[in-house]
């Protein structure tokens, strides 16, 4: 467990000190959210109706940009092989790296979301729900992304392929995250039923994704 926490802390520190990793993701998030009203027109009623969807989809894309780097740098400088030889099972290595991605990229995006929600005229009663659903859903994004990152490790055109592989798998998280928010904003559906399914999706992903990611990592390391 000690080695697990050390690995998470190392990855978080590396991402934060690398400079640009977090701010690029945040900047991309801001630009995507800001460019949509330019395409859709500045009608505030329309914007507030589609705000949950826009915020979620833009967050997905922003997180996807950095998912590729979960294993990439460590493979290039050989760190990944050393870590794989260490005492930590490869499944836990994959879990630690996905968790570090969530802490260093996912959480800042979630914290930025309410500020961007102001631009889209999200109803005031939905701000806490926005934070709650996103905190619940974003771990699934990082962990599923780690599977795609492990599968495309070291491939040419890996980034584009990663998006093609992973985006379809994000759909359930997206659907239930947005439907939980819409249940609060427009009713009459139950918030709790959608939210609990979102929790279930995240929990299942956090458990199962590292197994698949580790299997994929063994391919690249072999």
């Amino acid at each position: 467990m000690h080695a697990f926490i050390r690995l998470v802390a190392r990855d978080v520190r590396l991402t934060l000190r690398e400079g640009g990793a977090v701010s690029t993701a945040l900047g991309f998030y801001l630009v995507v959210v800001a460019i949509l009203p330019l395409g859709l027109g500045p009608d505030l009623n329309l914007l507030s109706r589609i705000a949950p969807g826009v915020l979620w989809v833009a967050l997905l894309l922003a997180a996807l940009l950095s998912v590729e780097r979960i294993f990439h740098n460590d493979l290039e400088d050989g760190t990944l092989e050393v870590i794989a030889l260490g005492p930590l099972p490869l499944e836990l290595v994959a879990a630690a790296k996905a968790l570090a991605h969530w802490i260093s990229i996912g959480l800042p995006l979630v914290i930025a979301a309410p500020i961007l929600a102001l631009l889209l005229n999200l109803p005031a009663n939905a701000f806490w729900i926005l934070l709650l659903t996103m905190v619940t859903g974003t771990p699934a994004i990082s962990f599923l992304g780690s599977v795609g990152a492990a599968l495309t490790l070291g491939l040419r055109r890996g980034g584009l392929l990663l998006a093609l592989l992973v985006l379809p798998l994000y759909v359930p998280v997206l659907v239930f995250g947005i439907s939980a928010m819409n249940a609060v904003i427009t009713g009459p559906a139950s918030f709790l039923s959608s939210y609990l399914i979102l929790c279930a999706l995240t929990l299942a992903t956090v458990v199962l994704a590292p197994i698949a990611a580790a299997a994929a990592l063994r391919l690249s390391l072999a």
Binding site: V147, L151, L165, L169, L208, A209, A212, A215, A216, L219
Partner: peptide
């Protein structure tokens, strides 16, 4: 690799 993705 494809087998892992297919099962996921």
């Amino acid at each position: 690799a494809a087998a892992i993705l297919a099962i996921v």
